[in-house]
């Protein structure tokens, strides 16, 4: 465990709590892509099946359970509790374009051909593209509310910190996880355009358009 890893996890948690808090306080999920949130719930579900098979640390278990709960509560808020405010006409990204290639790739390129490892690989690949429906929605409507942009900023920051964590681990432990690093780099690239808008426009106007 290094500083980049801890800060990365904290920023990931903060992103999810910000999003939940925003939905809860405004009693609305306008501008949030339900598809992205459903994909994140699927990512955590398929990755954290190891909760049942091996115990790593208390921190690890607690964080995994919190991430799972947050993602399920978010999906529940969007598709049930505050369904009326959900902007489904603008959440039109075709999920099969992500799910089909990601499923295929996880069967082809994995560490071992066992159900748990394939699901773990699937979750890594899926996480790298899960934000696309949200970014697609923002580009379609042409705007994002301030809190949504903060959410995306912290999610992107988490990715960037994880990259730093992998560089650190490579140098200190000689540990290098090829699948996670390649997907992580791809995922971080998706946030670059958004980061640019966030810094140049978001800060002064309070929203990204």
């Amino acid at each position: 465990m290094n500083l980049f890893r801890i800060l990365g996890d904290v920023s990931h948690l903060l992103a999810m709590i910000l999003l939940l808090g925003k939905i809860w306080r405004s009693k609305s999920c306008r501008g949030i892509s339900g598809k992205s949130q459903a994909l994140f719930a699927l990512v955590f579900t398929t990755r954290y099946l190891d909760l049942f098979t091996n115990f790593i640390s208390l921190y690890n278990t607690v964080m995994k359970v919190i991430f799972l709960l947050c993602s399920y509560v978010t999906v529940y808020m969007i598709y049930w509790k505050f369904w009326k405010s959900f902007d489904s006409e603008n959440d039109t990204f075709r999920l099969e374009f992500l799910l089909v290639p990601v499923t295929g790739l996880s069967f082809l390129e994995n560490y071992s051909f066992t159900p748990l490892e394939i699901l773990w690989t699937f979750s890594i690949y899926l996480e790298s593209v899960a934000i696309l429906p949200q970014l697609f929605m923002i580009s379609k409507t042409g705007e994002a509310e301030t809190i949504t942009t903060h959410y995306l900023f912290f999610l992107g920051l988490y990715r960037a910190l994880y990259l730093a964590n992998w560089i650190w681990r490579y140098h200190t432990e000689n540990f290098y996880d090829q699948i996670a690093v390649v997907s992580g780099v791809v995922q971080t690239i998706f946030y670059c355009d958004f980061f640019y808008l966030y810094v140049t426009k978001g800060r002064c106007q309070g929203r990204v358009e």
């Binding site: 890893r5 190891d50 091996n54 790593i56 991430f67 540990f175 996880d177 996670a180």
Partner: peptide, 10 residues
């Protein structure tokens, strides 16, 4: 060992 190191990350 590597598998454990991977599953340690969130």
């Amino acid at each position: 060992k590597d598998q454990e190191a991977r599953h340690d990350e969130l």
